[in-house]
Write a protein that binds this DNA or RNA. Structure first.
Lengths: 256, 256
DNA sequence: CCATCTTTGTGCACGCGTTCACAAAGACAT
DNA sequence: ATGTCTTTGTGAACGCGTGCACAAAGATGG
């Protein structure tokens, strides 16, 4: 799961818990798939399975929105799609700017998931003058100098930062000064923003490190099991094992 | 309370809360930056500020790892870097395969953050025969047919899925069958995996939708505030205001 | 050696989120 | 109408994570 949530420790936004808000897009996606298959109604059990959550949790989540279900039947798919879309603010158009058109920025610009739900890439912005005017995903890249103008003219309130870490805070400051109030940050840095500005962070490196932690734990337990039985488990695990210190890994530096 | 530095990794790691694990990479990054500036020690207050968290939380997080600080002084930067790295399993080498070399996959392959911390891109895999052999980020793209062989030979246990949503589950199944036990999924789908396999999800579309929810909320409150004071806060905010629907958005579909 | 000062490590309380379990509500058949 | 059956909506209990506040520990200076 992506990391997020920077400010606002306990923002019961409007009676809707933050955890529920984070799951609404998940439900919406599952419902949209059902809608495309012309499924008229769905039970909490079915929908929960499709969204990968517990059915009780799903029902409680929906209860924060209102009583949109019919007991004994389930939920009307189309109606629920609309209700969730409205709740998430997806019935309106959200222009978005992407700053930093490197590999990642270009990938984001080409990502179809943006346009599909109310989000429209208003502009691609990069600091490299050589990039200016070059078309990426059908849009000409604009230079950073025009940042404020672009945001103001298009009424953009959501910005995506895909720059190197070193440039992120500076870009962030300019975005905020220009009126941006929501930022999706892909740069591996902690952004500091004034109150009232939301930042969500997507950090590939952190996700991998969390996986590594659990992987190490699994490997360790497996190794212990192998030692007990005296037989190798998976070949791949055995191959990894040789690189790992026996246990008494020596610290690179000891404390004073 | 993992105070007494027992040399039982399994026991100790099981006691580390998931929320803490998710923050360790954050601390590690801040510490690495300090290390590069040759800062010898750091207080919980300073480090917490750099990592963007509460200092009490940071101290409690570290307390799960052991007593690595010195009262009245703070933490030894180098020592802490080592301890966290070891805890996260970053002192060993983690070969990773990336499946699906489209825009996003290529961006991930080129992402420097992977190599920097124990992660090594062992192979890039794509289903398109036309891609086979083509170099991306200095590595030749391999065809999906070789997937099992690549994983087995390189002892890969972590896989990254960057395919379209439709192919993700199938790729996932093959990865798991080949011995992968940790998956980072960028495809907008819920993956189902057997027990013992960890999946983390990064979903750009969901992050944007969560931002849109809060943005919508802010826009509503701001409009009310402006009406009360009769003066606009930030100029750009006023420009945005006109775009917003009055509120009475008509449902696309009404329930039966 | 003692006093003072800084900073850690943690006991405790509180609030959010999750899950269980079930009563209420409605559909449907007879 | 009445009973049965399905599924929702939610009260309540529990567990986890967070943050406060402070005692313990060690550094530092006289």
């Amino acid at each position: 799961m992506a990391t997020g949530r920077t400010h606002r420790p306990a923002t019961r936004s409007r009676g809707i818990p933050e955890a529920t808000v984070a799951r609404l897009p998940l439900y919406l996606r599952a419902l949209t798939a059902l809608s495309e298959r012309s499924v008229p109604t769905v039970s909490s059990e079915e929908l929960a399975a499709a969204a990968g959550v517990n059915s009780a949790k799903l029902r409680k989540d929906f209860s924060y929105l209102g009583s949109y279900g019919t007991r004994g039947v389930g939920y009307d798919v189309e109606y629920l799609v609309y209700q969730i879309s409205r709740e998430l603010g997806l019935t309106q158009d959200w222009p978005v700017v992407i700053v930093g058109i490197g590999n990642l920025g270009a990938a984001l610009a080409n990502y179809g998931g943006f346009a599909s739900r109310g989000f429209r890439v208003a502009a691609l912005i990069d600091a490299d003058p050589a990039m200016a005017g070059k078309p990426v995903a059908g849009l000409p890249v604009r230079h950073t100098d025009e940042l404020e103008e672009i945001i103001s003219e298009n009424g953009v309130s959501i910005g995506v930062i895909a720059t190197p870490a070193g440039a992120a805070q500076q870009v962030c400051d300019r975005l905020v000064a220009a009126g941006i109030t929501s930022i999706l940050n892909f740069a591996p840095t902690v952004l500091s923003v004034p109150d009232g500005v939301d930042v969500r962070k997507v950090d590939l490196s952190i996700e991998l490190q969390i996986l590594a932690f659990h992987e190490q734990r699994k490997a360790g337990e497996e190794t212990a099991a192998v030692r007990r039985t005296g037989t190798a488990g998976r070949p791949a695990a055995a191959a990894r094992e040789g690189r790992k210190g026996p246990d008494g890994d020596v610290p690179a530096v000891m404390p004073a």
